[in-house]
Design a protein around this nucleic acid. Structure first.
Lengths: 226, 226
DNA sequence: TAGATTGTTAATCGATTAACAATC
DNA sequence: TAGATTGTTAATCGATTAACAATC
């Protein structure tokens, strides 16, 4: 088992690594023992050197002439991302978005296990979504402590986001995956990952404007990457 | 009305611009005529020069000693992003995620108007979500053509994503906001913006691994930005 | 061996930060 | 005027790409 490096891995590399996984899993299913950086890069329109750099930066090496051993590659990426051990998460906010995330079956492959949803609305409390119970928010702190849940997924209305985040931190949550558009002010030690739909939409709509208002320009737009 | 530049605006700038908006709207509500780059940058932990560069790149200039006129600033950003004219969108896939997006009231401020949802499931067709009707997917093409809807928001199951995208393009859709984890293969002229939750989760979980497996490291992690 | 592929070192490119003059 | 703030030019930093030697 190779040593996984942790320092010196760039932000962009971390974002690309999970994208490699479906291709690698497909290769494994097809019975391939090795996969070349060229095969990976072709699929994503990347430079093969970039793929090798990504893999080298987490300590995975290939073999000249053969490529990278698929099984080790998958294991290495999973280990680097912490996807080899499931991390448990609570969803705060059992609206449509919270329920959509709770119902998504794919997070298991990404090392995430949603355990329960929380809400303040008595109408919602008690319901079960994809096998996960909607629990009253008053029980949040004690359950975080008892189950040592490290992650809160925030899907409350924007105006409730800061309070919910504060409550989560007070309860001992280590990381917040924030799906609300609210910018949170939290202690530095807390890990916050923002899902910024406004930014994503801005990229889309600014390209659309370029394409429609000045048709000739859209071929010169920066490539999709996010 | 100042001229808005379109070329030479970086990807990161485009992603930051919408984040400035809530602060600017708040300043406007508070009756401020001007806001300085320092005030904006403080709020986000950015360098004030970066804010000025962002604004300069879309052709907005400030006044020494005063800062930037709030009203012009808001107008300029909205115009650059195309948020001054509402773009209409169809949601394909009326599951929890599609319904969550259809029910979100904030897109109007971001120049997006969700007009209807589409699904193949007869159980869902006919229902109304936040005033938007769930329509049978068979009617998609004719409605895109009739209403000249430029944007499709893709919230179908992963395995249905490519087919749905192909259908959208065939119908005349110009841009796809893809919420599925499926990498789409589409003509170059089509604008695709990927909401990549796996990438976002990878950033979160790799930091969490660093923090828990090697506690001393987490202070040296790259800053939040997404 | 020959050739495909990796891994490393240097060059390029782009974005951010630093320094400082210009302005109101 | 003095001082806060902008805008520009240069320096730094980081990520990507190019060139090429090493390897199986």
């Amino acid at each position: 088992m190779k040593e996984i490096t942790r320092e010196g891995v760039s932000y962009m590399t971390i974002r690309r690594l999970p994208q490699y996984m479906p291709l690698l899993r497909a290769a494994l299913d097809a019975g391939d023992h090795c996969v070349s950086s060229t095969k990976i890069s072709d699929f994503f329109g990347l430079d093969p050197v970039l793929v090798r750099k990504d893999l080298a930066s987490i300590g995975i090496t290939g073999q000249a002439r053969l490529g990278f051993p698929v099984r080790e590659l998958i294991g290495g990426i999973e280990r680097f991302l912490g996807w080899d051990n499931l991390s448990e998460a609570f969803v705060i906010g059992a609206g449509n978005l919270g329920r959509a995330l709770a119902g998504y079956g794919g997070f298991g492959q990404h090392g995430l296990k949603i355990v329960a949803l929380f809400d303040t609305d008595p109408e919602k409390v008690g319901k079960v979504i994809a096998g996960k119970r909607v629990t009253d928010m008053t029980k949040f702190a004690s359950l975080v402590e008892r189950l040592r849940v490290p992650i809160a997924i925030l899907t409350v209305p924007p105006e409730a986001a800061q309070d919910a985040a504060d409550a989560a931190i007070a309860a001992g949550i280590k990381a917040i995956w924030n799906f609300t558009p609210t910018k949170l002010t939290l202690p530095d030690a807390i890990i916050v990952e923002q899902v910024d739909l406004a930014a994503s939409l801005a990229v889309l709509s600014s390209r659309l404007v370029s394409a429609t208002r000045t048709p000739r320009q859209y071929e010169e737009q920066p490539v999709n990457d996010m």
